[in-house]
C-alpha cells in the first residue's frame, strides 16, 4: 500500500481576465500513511480541491511535489491507472449511461473483460443498496442514489487511494449522514487510504482518523497526527474554527519532518481552552 508525501507543494494560477496570479497553495508539507482516513478542512476557496486535483494528477504543481509510492501522479499518469480514484462534489455521472454502465466506466478503462465488468459493477451497486436500479439512468435517481453510484464507481476499480472532494455536502443531512457512514465502513473495511476534503467540520470530526486544517491560501494550520483528539471533539472543533478565522498556524515550529505539531506545550491531548 503506497504512502503519500507532500513536499513543498505550491500552486498558482494566472487568471484569464486581468492576468493576475492567484496563489491557491502556498506551501504544504505532510505525509499520509497507507490505510489512513484523513480529512482536510478549511475555509471555502482555501485550495483544498486544488490539492485534490494535484493528488489525482489532473494538474501540475507550480513548485514542490506530491509523491505516491515514490512517484508523481501527474508525470506517471498511466502508472496510477486503477490505483487512485475520486468521489466528487456532485455525482458526475455520465447522463447517457445507466447506473450499471456508469460503474463499469473505470473497469472498461482498465481493460477488464465485459463479464468481469458486469459482475464487479453489479456487486458494488448491490452493496450500495441499488440492486433494483442497475438500468436506471441518472435522471431517474435521487441525489443520494446518484452519489451512491459514484461511490460504487470509485470502489469498483479497487483503488489503493480514494480521493473524496466534498462528496456529501450538497445532500440533505439524513442522506449525507447515511452515505458518510457507508463510506467510512467501506473505506476501513477495504483498507483504503482516503483523503477527504470537506468544508463541514462535523463531517471531518465524525469519520476521519486524522484532520489537516488548511489556511488560505493553502498552508498547514493544524495536523492532528499522533494526537488523541477523539476525547475532546468539542475543544478541537473550537480550535479549528479559531485557526480558520485567524488563518494562523497552530505553531510556527516544525518537527523537522514538515509536520506542524498539534500542541505547542507538548501536551498529548487537546483541551477546550485552545492550548
Amino acid at each position: 500500500m503506497p504512502g503519500i508525501r507532500v513536499e513543498g507543494l505550491a500552486k498558482s494560477y494566472k487568471q484569464s481576465q486581468g492576468g493576475e496570479v492567484v496563489t491557491a497553495i502556498k506551501g504544504l508539507d505532510f505525509a499520509i500513511a497507507s490505510g489512513e482516513l484523513v480529512a482536510i478542512a478549511g475555509r471555502t476557496g482555501c485550495g483544498k480541491s486544488t490539492f485534490l486535483n494535484l493528488l489525482l494528477g489532473l494538474d501540475r504543481p507550480t513548485a514542490g511535489r506530491i509523491l505516491v509510492d515514490g512517484r508523481t501522479p501527474y508525470n506517471d499518469f498511466a502508472y496510477f491507472r486503477g490505483k487512485i480514484a475520486g468521489i466528487f462534489q456532485e455525482d458526475r455521472l455520465l447522463p447517457w449511461r445507466s447506473a450499471l454502465e456508469n460503474v463499469k466506466l473505470g473497469l472498461e478503462i482498465l481493460g477488464r473483460s465485459p463479464a468481469e465488468q458486469k459482475e464487479i459493477a453489479s456487486s458494488w451497486l448491490e452493496r450500495m443498496g441499488l440492486a433494483d436500479y442497475l438500468h436506471a439512468y441518472p435522471h431517474e435517481l435521487s441525489g443520494g442514489m446518484r452519489q451512491r453510484v459514484s461511490m460504487a464507481r470509485a470502489y469498483a476499480v479497487n483503488p489503493e487511494i480514494l480521493v473524496v472532494d466534498e462528496a456529501f455536502g450538497h445532500l440533505d443531512e439524513v442522506t449525507a449522514i447515511a452515505l458518510r457512514k457507508t463510506f467510512g465502513e467501506l473505506t476501513r473495511g477495504e483498507k483504503k487510504t482516503a483523503i477527504m476534503v470537506t468544508h463541514q467540520l462535523e463531517e471531518a470530526l465524525d469519520i476521519a482518523d486524522r484532520i489537516l486544517v488548511f489556511g488560505r491560501p493553502a498552508t498547514l494550520l493544524l495536523d492532528t497526527l499522533g494526537k488523541d483528539w477523539k476525547g475532546d471533539v468539542r475543544g478541537l472543533r473550537g480550535m479549528i474554527h479559531n485557526l480558520i478565522e485567524t488563518n494562523v498556524p497552530m505553531s510556527g515550529q516544525s518537527n523537522g519532518a514538515g509536520v506542524v505539531p498539534f500542541a505547542q506545550s507538548g501536551k498529548e491531548t487537546f483541551d477546550a481552552s485552545g492550548h
Binding site: L58, R81, I84, G86, R92
Partner: peptide, 8 residues
Amino acid sequence: SMVWSFRP
C-alpha cells in the same frame, strides 16, 4: 476531470 481521474 472525472473521466481523466480514471486515466484513460
